[in-house]
């Protein structure tokens, strides 16, 4: 028992000693290093191109509500990285979530076991009513978060997670509430297919997968940023459906 902890401590300390050395590095006099470790200098990073929106086009000043037809029209730069510059990663990420949801279904073997409910028969009236009121509000908040993902903080993941939370609360409080397996399946399939479909449409019309094929509009307006809002809507539905599916499976197991 003690021995195990000791071994764990030794291994952890060994790793710590090795990795913490990275933080002690200071460039010697006259040594040329790119970036001093831990000191972010954006000018030397790819990020500067994303901030200037100048990967494919020339360096232009981006002005809120004024600049038009930039290469990536999102005002939220993180969104433009997630849903445009590095959207392939994001596709991979929702795939991971999809695989995890499928895997959980397999592991818990739900088709063969009797579906159980979480012990919430005695959930109080106040809780029940409160969640009844909260449920549409959460759905609305989630929708707002992903629809405005290219303008303000937030986006598909956050919106999807909020929506999934709404369903989680509903499932926990209301015993009669049931989401049909098939509707979750349809939503997640449709959302996934539309994400890949957007990518393939870009491949067919513009020549590379997930390439933006719509006008990017004016920075800062709701209807702008090309395919970013469409991708974020697909992500939100996908993430919302997957997380709801995961939670539903865990509740019914």
């Amino acid at each position: 028992m003690k021995f195990r902890n000791l071994i764990a401590l030794v291994i952890t300390a060994a790793f710590a000693l090795i990795i913490l050395q990275a933080f002690t590095i200071t460039p010697a006099a006259g040594e040329i290093t790119l970036n001093e470790f831990g000191k972010a200098d954006i000018n030397n990073r790819t990020a500067q191109l994303y901030l200037n929106k100048s990967v494919n086009t020339d360096n232009k000043k981006v002005i809120y509500q004024e600049s038009k037809n930039l290469e990536s029209g999102s005002a939220n730069i993180v969104t433009s990285v997630v849903a445009n510059y590095r959207s392939f990663d994001t596709l991979g990420e929702i795939t991971v979530l999809f695989l995890a949801a499928a895997g959980i279904g397999v592991v818990l073997n739900l088709e063969n076991s009797k579906k159980k409910k979480f012990a919430a028969d005695d959930s109080s009236l106040i809780l029940n009513t409160g969640i009844k009121l909260l449920f549409p509000l959460l759905l609305l908040a989630g929708t707002y978060i992903f629809v405005y993902g290219h303008l303000s903080p937030g986006g598909g993941f956050q919106g999807g997670a909020v929506i999934a939370t709404a369903f989680l609360l509903k499932m926990l409080s209301d015993n009669k509430f049931e989401i049909k397996e098939i509707s979750i399946t349809l939503v997640e399939s449709t959302a996934g297919i539309s994400f890949v479909g957007l990518g393939l449409y870009g491949l067919v019309t513009r020549g590379s997968f997930l390439e933006n094929f719509m006008a990017t509009g004016t920075v800062g307006q709701l209807f702008s940023a090309g395919i970013i809002p469409l991708i974020y809507i697909a992500i939100a539905f996908k993430v919302g459906a997957e997380l709801t599916n995961i939670v539903k499976n865990l509740i019914e197991a």
Binding site: R45, T46, A47, L51, K61, V62, Q65, N76, S80, G220
Partner: peptide, 17 residues
């Protein structure tokens, strides 16, 4: 985020990547 507070990319931003 480019918004009404930081209306242009001339301001310093943290690394989005």
């Amino acid at each position: 985020i480019i918004n009404s507070v930081n209306p242009s990319n001339a301001a310093a931003f943290v690394d989005p990547i």
